[in-house]
C-alpha cells in the first residue's frame, strides 16, 4: 500500500507538471495578450504604449524564463502579480476560493442527498408511477440548461416574494451564508443529482438481480436490509466514480450560476481573467482546479477500497 501511495503521489506530480506546461503554452497560443487588451479597452492601439506595458509585465522575456519564473513562484507560494488589478494574485484568488468551495460542496451535497435515495427508490419501485415520476424529474434535470433554470428561479422569487436571492453583500452569519448559497447550489446540484439518480437506479437494478441478493432474501433479510446493506453498497461503485467526475465538472456549472446569482467566486473570476488574458490569475486558478481534480480522483480510488473490500491496491 505504501509503495502504491508513493507511485500515486509521483504520478500526481507528473500530471500537475504536464498540466502546467499545457496551461502555459495554450494561454500563449490564444490571440491577443494583456497589453493588446488594456490598450484596446481604451479604444487605441498605440504601439509605444503597448510596448511599454509588455515590458513592464515582463512579457517580452524569453518564454522559458517566464515559465521558470511562474513555476518557481508556485513552489515558493508566490503566485505573482495580477496584470489587471496590479495586486498580488494570491490576494485576488484567496478570498474567492472559500465561496466557490462552499457552493460546489453544497451542490455536490444536494446531488448526492437527492440523487442516491431517489435512485434507490426508483429502482426498488421499478415501473411504478413513482418510478416514472422520478425518471421525468431526472430527465428534466439533465435537459434544463442551468442559466435558464437560474433565471427562472430569480424571476419567480421577484414575482412571488418581492426579493431576489443574489449575493449582493457578504453574509453576516453562517446561517445567512447557507441560506444565500443554498438556492444557487440547488440549481447547480439539480443537474448532477439527476445524473446520480439515473446511475444509482440502473446500477441498483443490475445489483438487485444478482444471486447474492436472492440469497440474502432467502435467508430472511428484510427488504430494507437487502436494499441498503446488500445492494446499495455494491451499486455505489459506479456512482462514486460519477460523483468524482461531476465534482470536476462542477466548475463549469459554477460559471453560469455564479454569473446569474452574482456570486463573487472563482469560476466567474476565471472567465473574466481569461477574457483579459490575465496570465498569472488564469495559470494559477487552472492549476488549482487541476490539483482539485487530481485529488478527487485519488479520493475516489480510496473510496473504492472502503466500499468493496475485495479491491486492494498492490504494492
Amino acid at each position: 500500500m505504501g509503495a502504491y501511495l508513493t507511485r500515486r503521489f509521483l504520478l500526481m506530480l507528473l500530471t500537475l507538471f504536464g498540466m502546467s506546461v499545457l496551461i502555459f503554452v495554450m494561454l500563449r497560443l490564444v490571440p491577443g495578450n494583456i497589453a493588446d487588451i488594456l490598450v484596446d479597452a481604451a479604444g487605441i492601439a498605440d504601439p509605444k504604449e503597448k510596448a511599454k506595458i509588455i515590458n513592464e509585465l515582463g512579457l517580452d522575456r524569453p518564454i522559458l524564463e517566464q515559465y521558470g519564473q511562474w513555476v518557481g513562484g508556485l513552489v515558493r507560494g508566490d503566485l505573482g502579480f495580477a496584470y489587471v488589478s496590479e495586486r498580488p494574485a494570491l490576494e485576488e484568488i484567496a478570498p474567492r476560493i472559500p465561496i466557490s468551495a462552499k457552493l460546489a460542496g453544497m451542490a455536490l451535497f444536494f446531488s448526492v442527498v437527492i440523487g442516491v435515495p431517489f435512485g434507490v427508490i426508483s429502482a426498488v419501485r421499478q415501473n411504478t408511477a413513482l418510478d416514472y415520476f422520478l425518471r421525468v424529474i431526472s430527465l428534466s434535470g439533465l435537459s434544463l440548461p442551468s442559466f435558464w433554470l437560474a433565471l427562472l428561479v430569480l424571476m419567480a422569487s421577484v414575482h412571488w416574494f418581492g426579493t431576489i436571492p443574489i449575493y449582493s453583500n457578504e453574509p453576516r452569519s453562517f446561517l445567512q451564508e447557507v441560506g444565500l448559497l443554498s438556492i444557487p447550489a440547488a440549481v447547480v446540484g439539480f443537474r448532477s443529482s439527476a445524473l446520480v439518480m439515473r446511475l444509482t437506479r440502473s446500477s441498483m437494478l443490475e445489483v438487485l438481480r444478482q444471486d447474492y441478493i436472492r440469497t440474502a432474501r432467502s435467508k430472511g433479510a428484510s427488504q430494507t436490509s437487502v436494499n441498503y446493506d446488500h445492494a446499495l453498497r455494491n451499486a455505489l461503485l459506479p456512482v462514486v466514480t460519477i460523483i468524482g467526475i461531476e465534482a470536476a465538472f462542477l466548475v463549469g456549472g459554477l460559471i453560469v450560476t455564479e454569473t446569474v446569482f452574482n456570486i463573487p467566486g472563482v469560476a466567474r473570476f476565471l472567465v473574466e481573467a481569461i477574457l483579459w488574458r490575465d496570465y498569472p490569475i488564469v495559470q494559477n486558478l487552472v492549476m488549482l482546479i487541476a490539483f482539485v481534480v487530481v485529488m478527487v480522483n485519488f479520493l475516489v480510488d480510496m473510496a473504492y477500497m472502503a466500499l468493496d473490500p475485495r479491491i486492494k491496491y498492490a504494492d
Partner: peptide
C-alpha cells in the same frame, strides 16, 4: 456599487429593491 455582469440579474435586482 455592485458589479453584476448579467443584465437580467441587474434588472431583477432593481425591480426587487436590491
Amino acid at each position: 456599487w455592485k458589479i453584476v455582469p448579467n443584465r437580467s440579474t441587474r434588472m431583477l435586482g432593481f425591480a426587487a429593491g436590491e
